Simulated scan of single mutants.
Amino acid sequence: MNQDPFQMDSLGASKEHVLVVDDDFGTLECLEETARVMGLAVSAASTGEDALRIFERDQPDLVVTDVRMPGMDGLTLTQRIKTLQPDCPVIIVTGHGDEETAVAALKAGASDYLRKPFQLLELKSTIVRSVSLVRSRRVEMSAALSVERVESYYELKNEPELVSGLLTCLLRPVDPWLSETQRLHLRVACQELLMNAIEHGNLEISAEEKLQAVLADSYERLLEARRADPRLNRRRVRVWIKHDVKERRFVCRICDEGHGFDWRRFVSASPSQMLERMGSGRGIFLIQTLLSECRYHGNGNEVTVTIHYDDQSQAAGLHAPSSGVSV
């Protein structure tokens, strides 16, 4: 008897865990049964809220979710999942009239989509593609564990829309050495630092200007105007990273070519004062809360972040300027 080509065991890896989400019982039952027959471990939810709770608790490898659901829809669920676990593949299931939402979900990080009514073969093929992504990522993580030292230098244009993808490349060597919480904290903090370097540093967009532009739906115009300024468009963000297993730490140094800022006044502010700020200083408070070591240098346009692989406390603290970490 021929073996089912879509049987996950035939792909030669341990059993993956898929979370299926749909408010229609018939569709949910079909998704659940198909994944189980394929050899996957399965969890099911009929609402986005329940799905998010299951995801946070069980950390499944793959999510298949309907777009249109009462309460939390598939787009919002995808966004929340990608915040928690950027590498988790999400398959969006759409119906007629959901095309715009599906496109938004794909832009938010969904890896694939199915359109109702779908054929069983189409469902299985889509799941196999996403499981292959999971397994490729697992191989990458295993390979990364054999790399004991990495030193890299990057020079970046002022393109905020590319920061998220860039971070995936920058942080890949260190991913296997960190807990889920450390990975999330490091990614959020580095994203904040890179965005600050581009917007506030190189392009000289103040927190107040950005807030007003966002509220007026004119942020893209503001960004393009600054990038077209001959005085600003040649500026670059420079990033040095060092991953060292023997030293058990990851160091990232970020420099912009702006005028800097008085970071010392933010260090001396109390948590309540920082939280009250609408724009300026809130990013520093976020970084200060998430990371154990973050050092600003000189006039504030250079910052060094250090994370220790065995540091589980993540105690907050910005430090006075030092000679810097040699990367």
Score class of each variant (00 low, 15 high):
residue 246 K to Y: 12
residue 189 A to W: 03
residue 65 T to I: 05
residue 13 A to N: 09
residue 118 F to T: 04
residue 259 H to W: 02
residue 204 E to Y: 03
residue 159 E to T: 08
residue 173 P to L: 06
residue 307 I to P: 10
residue 311 D to T: 05
residue 308 H to C: 08
residue 206 S to E: 07
residue 119 Q to Y: 00
residue 266 F to A: 12
residue 98 D to V: 07
residue 303 V to Q: 01
residue 44 A to G: 01
residue 25 F to E: 14
residue 275 L to P: 00
residue 10 S to I: 12
residue 322 S to G: 15
residue 26 G to S: 15
residue 152 S to E: 15
residue 200 H to Q: 09
residue 200 H to N: 13
residue 107 K to G: 06
residue 298 G to E: 14
residue 134 V to Q: 08
residue 306 T to I: 13
residue 172 R to F: 10
residue 29 E to W: 00
residue 123 L to G: 00
residue 78 T to N: 09
residue 174 V to W: 01
residue 167 L to W: 05
residue 137 R to L: 04
residue 315 A to T: 15
residue 9 D to A: 14
residue 79 Q to H: 03
residue 99 E to L: 12
residue 197 A to W: 11
residue 103 V to G: 01
residue 249 R to K: 14
residue 122 E to M: 01
residue 39 G to T: 00
residue 219 Y to K: 04
residue 273 Q to G: 11
residue 26 G to K: 11
residue 212 Q to H: 04
residue 179 S to E: 12
residue 213 A to N: 08
residue 168 T to G: 01
residue 162 L to V: 05
residue 93 V to M: 11
residue 318 L to Q: 05
residue 194 L to Q: 06
residue 277 R to P: 07
residue 292 S to Y: 00
residue 106 L to C: 13
residue 232 L to Y: 05
residue 208 E to D: 12
residue 271 P to W: 09
residue 40 L to D: 05
residue 181 T to Q: 15
residue 45 A to M: 07
residue 110 A to H: 02
residue 238 R to K: 10
residue 199 E to L: 11
residue 266 F to S: 09
residue 94 T to Q: 13
residue 254 I to S: 06
residue 91 I to V: 15
residue 235 R to G: 11
